[in-house]
Write a protein that binds this DNA or RNA. Structure first.
Lengths: 236, 236
DNA sequence: CTCCGAATTTGATCTGCGTCAACTGCCTTT
DNA sequence: AAAGGCAGTTGACGCAGATCAAATTCGGAG
């Protein structure tokens, strides 16, 4: 939320980029990748720094390289809905109005690959396969968005939390490998604002799931003790 | 929901198509349009017929020409969340898994322009500007989806209903011209499932808004008597 | 016009989750 | 090691909206 003091470092090499296969760049061949390298610059954000705000004019696209961001919208009276969390490989900045339609800030330290809008736009222009890749990511996000609508509109608090924990675990799998230790870098308030609950309800639900032997609350996350039972809660 | 008995008629001419400017086709020039004509066929669906179901393999794309569809997802126990309503100009069928990720059925009679997946895919392949147009529609939908998440997660029943009525009116404006008479072709149950409420709460909220002089409930819709007050409720 | 069934409205009651408030434990500062 | 602060947890209570139930309206069939 505070003013942005970022560190810009020389570009790394795309071909060494650990998240390339998950990202937009997956669609580029070696020659394109070398050209692409010059378009983006690595930028670091400290914990809780704002990366962009809703209604800001879009000047850049962002490719998350490291860290986690929260993406959210605010109502005029301050109520907040987190519309998603961005992980390494996620691509941000697509819009239709020339303005961002949500705000994004760093949870913990974040590194992004930042592309100025115009040159990036020109690069896409000549590369339909990159556009196709971007479209694929948009369509995937749309599908996730619809799943989340079901969660927000029709699920109970316990179902919401169970669904969130499983979904988060699954999103981390390609990054960290499969594990039932689920790190939760975001705060309880973030989880509440993502699930359309209050912080107290999230806390109580965590406690209940722990009492029921479904999870164990550990420092900085949870351990999924009984994934099957969690799946059952999430499916119901 | 019942088995589909559809009527297929000879293709109309794209250049006479009333919704062309709103639709994917807006990106095509005259020559392309003539070629495009042969790809799609007009198909009619009767009220309440299913157009496609979640988890069906995607075999076609659809361009809505006339009528309204509800797009929804079901939980295993039957709870339903409507993720959107499709109006003339909307394009359906994009996905990443080869399967639809929601179900769609006609509210009242519907006409669509149906494209078989493979030839349509080939047509796009050679026309990046069409892909760009499709991407634009996807990004716009994504933005709407996020707005709807805020509604589902953070708004009260009254705010939900007011927001819905205004949003629906605004979506109809390009089709019917501006008017404060808002036709509501969908049932109260549909509205409830769209807003994450029960039918009783929707009904009560309509009644309350009418009592407060914000709307008048008329046959097949509502009349927006005090748009300013409705805006205030929706903004809050 | 009358009857039937479905959609909607209205009423009475219940409850899941929100609100308000206090407490705990951990981390940082001095 | 004491003090202060913030994130998280727990408890008591209230309320918005769900649930259950009954009326009412409406549209279509005969």
């Amino acid at each position: 939320m505070k003013a942005s003091v970022v560190t810009i470092e020389p570009n790394g090499l795309c071909k060494d980029c650990s998240i390339r296969e998950f990202s937009v760049c997956a669609s580029l061949d070696d020659a394109e990748l070398r050209e692409f390298e010059h378009l983006g610059r690595r930028v670091h954000f400290a914990a809780c720094e704002s990366v962009f705000s809703e209604e800001d004019f879009t000047t850049s696209f962002f490719n998350v390289l490291d860290g986690v961001m929260r993406l959210y919208k605010l109502l005029p009276d301050g109520r907040r809905q987190i519309v998603g969390f961005a992980l390494p490989g996620d691509f941000l900045g697509m819009n239709v109005s020339g303005r961002h339609n949500f705000s994004a800030d760093a949870i913990g330290p974040v590194t992004v690959c930042q592309f100025s809008k115009a040159p990036f736009g020109r690069f896409i222009e000549e590369r339909p396969h990159l556009l196709r890749r971007i479209n694929e990511l948009a369509v995937r996000e749309l599908s996730q968005a619809r799943d989340h609508m079901v969660l927000l509109g029709r699920r109970s608090a316990e179902e919401k939390v169970a669904t969130f924990l499983l979904g988060w675990r699954d999103r981390l799998t390609p990054l960290n490998g499969p594990s039932n230790i689920v790190p939760l870098p975001m705060s309880r308030q973030d989880i509440a604002d993502y699930l359309g609950l209050t912080i107290e309800t999230v806390s109580r639900t965590f406690t209940k799931l722990e009492r029921d032997g479904v999870i164990e609350i550990i420092h900085g996350g949870i351990s999924l003790l009984d994934a099957a039972r969690a799946e059952a809660l999430a499916a119901a």
